[in-house]
Simulated scan of single mutants.
Amino acid sequence: MTLIKKLSAEFIGTFWLVLGGCGSAVIAAGFPNVGIGLLGVSFAFGLTVLTMAYAIGHISGCHLNPAVSIGLWSGGRFPVSELVPYIVVQVAGGLTGAAVLYVIASGQAGFDISAGFATNGYGEHSPGGYSLIAALVCEIVMTFMFLIIILGATDKRAPQGFAPIAIGLGLTLIHLISIPVTNTSVNPARSTGVAILQGDWALSQLWLFWLAPIAGAMLAGVVYRWLGSTKEA
């Protein structure tokens, strides 16, 4: 598979993740008193990954997330030569998804992007008012576990054909746990797209949603290299 086809697939997949996941939060979560709520948003994010994993997993690996690409590189599953191109198109796809979501959401009278645009935050911008330290720990641990799931489910020794289900449900569970803390990132591309559109405080807090997911992903890559090794230690 050529690199341009891989990058195109990653762009489309990340676009879908942001439009589907963040779109469910912005458009459908509370509509209007009978919305899908936290449970629905959690499943929406999981379903975007599950559907894209089956659609483009055989083309690009369906990372859709700079932290996933970095974690797979850390785990010895992804070449460093493709790391930067993957991250660039993932961020571009996330921004495009956020832009399309803005066009749709702003078609409703009274729409106010400053009131929230599925952005990630801590402190006063955390849905539950959680501190910076709580948000940092949460994002590191959740991304660590996400990468352990990905690395394990895609291991050649794992049951074949079921990885997208495990990964999609894993992301759903992560959202069920952490939406109240940070609105759940575990994905710098997802956070960046909506933060750029929202601007203001979302951009000033964006650093955490790059630092923590990347740290958690890199740690998971190292741990799974040891955990999954067949060599005696």
Score class of each variant (00 low, 15 high):
residue 1 M to L: 14
residue 4 I to E: 10
residue 4 I to F: 07
residue 5 K to F: 13
residue 6 K to T: 09
residue 8 S to Y: 09
residue 11 F to D: 09
residue 14 T to E: 08
residue 14 T to S: 04
residue 16 W to E: 07
residue 17 L to R: 01
residue 26 V to E: 05
residue 29 A to V: 13
residue 32 P to I: 10
residue 34 V to Q: 15
residue 34 V to E: 14
residue 35 G to K: 15
residue 35 G to S: 10
residue 36 I to F: 13
residue 42 S to N: 03
residue 43 F to E: 00
residue 44 A to D: 06
residue 44 A to I: 02
residue 45 F to A: 01
residue 46 G to T: 01
residue 48 T to K: 00
residue 50 L to V: 03
residue 50 L to C: 07
residue 51 T to V: 14
residue 54 Y to K: 04
residue 54 Y to Q: 09
residue 56 I to Y: 13
residue 56 I to K: 11
residue 58 H to Q: 14
residue 58 H to P: 15
residue 58 H to C: 12
residue 59 I to R: 11
residue 60 S to L: 04
residue 60 S to F: 04
residue 61 G to F: 09
residue 61 G to P: 09
residue 63 H to V: 05
residue 67 A to Y: 01
residue 68 V to I: 15
residue 69 S to Y: 02
residue 69 S to H: 04
residue 71 G to Q: 04
residue 72 L to F: 14
residue 72 L to G: 10
residue 73 W to D: 07
residue 76 G to Q: 09
residue 76 G to C: 11
residue 77 R to Y: 11
residue 81 S to I: 14
residue 83 L to G: 10
residue 84 V to H: 12
residue 86 Y to N: 02
residue 90 Q to E: 15
residue 93 G to H: 02
residue 93 G to S: 04
residue 93 G to R: 01
residue 95 L to T: 11
residue 95 L to H: 08
residue 96 T to P: 04
residue 97 G to E: 03
residue 98 A to C: 04
residue 98 A to M: 03
residue 99 A to S: 12
residue 102 Y to G: 05
residue 107 G to L: 06
residue 111 F to L: 11
residue 112 D to T: 09
residue 113 I to H: 13
residue 115 A to K: 14
residue 115 A to E: 08
residue 117 F to I: 03
residue 117 F to C: 02
residue 124 E to T: 12
residue 126 S to M: 03
residue 126 S to N: 05
residue 132 L to N: 12
residue 135 A to W: 05
residue 135 A to P: 06
residue 135 A to G: 10
residue 138 C to M: 13
residue 143 T to C: 03
residue 144 F to E: 05
residue 145 M to R: 09
residue 145 M to T: 09
residue 146 F to H: 04
residue 149 I to Y: 06
residue 150 I to R: 02
residue 150 I to T: 11
residue 151 L to I: 14
residue 154 T to M: 12
residue 154 T to D: 13
residue 160 Q to I: 15
residue 163 A to S: 07
residue 163 A to T: 03
residue 164 P to A: 09
residue 169 L to P: 07
residue 170 G to H: 00
residue 172 T to I: 00
residue 173 L to I: 10
residue 177 I to E: 11
residue 179 I to P: 00
residue 180 P to A: 03
residue 183 N to R: 13
residue 186 V to R: 01
residue 187 N to S: 01
residue 188 P to Y: 05
residue 193 G to A: 04
residue 194 V to A: 07
residue 195 A to T: 05
residue 195 A to K: 05
residue 196 I to W: 08
residue 198 Q to L: 14
residue 199 G to T: 06
residue 199 G to A: 08
residue 201 W to V: 03
residue 204 S to W: 11
residue 207 W to E: 08
residue 207 W to N: 07
residue 208 L to T: 07
residue 211 L to E: 05
residue 212 A to W: 00
residue 213 P to R: 00
residue 214 I to L: 15
residue 215 A to Y: 13
residue 218 M to L: 12
residue 220 A to M: 06
residue 220 A to V: 05
residue 220 A to H: 06
residue 221 G to R: 02
residue 228 G to I: 02
residue 229 S to F: 09
residue 230 T to H: 13
residue 232 E to I: 14
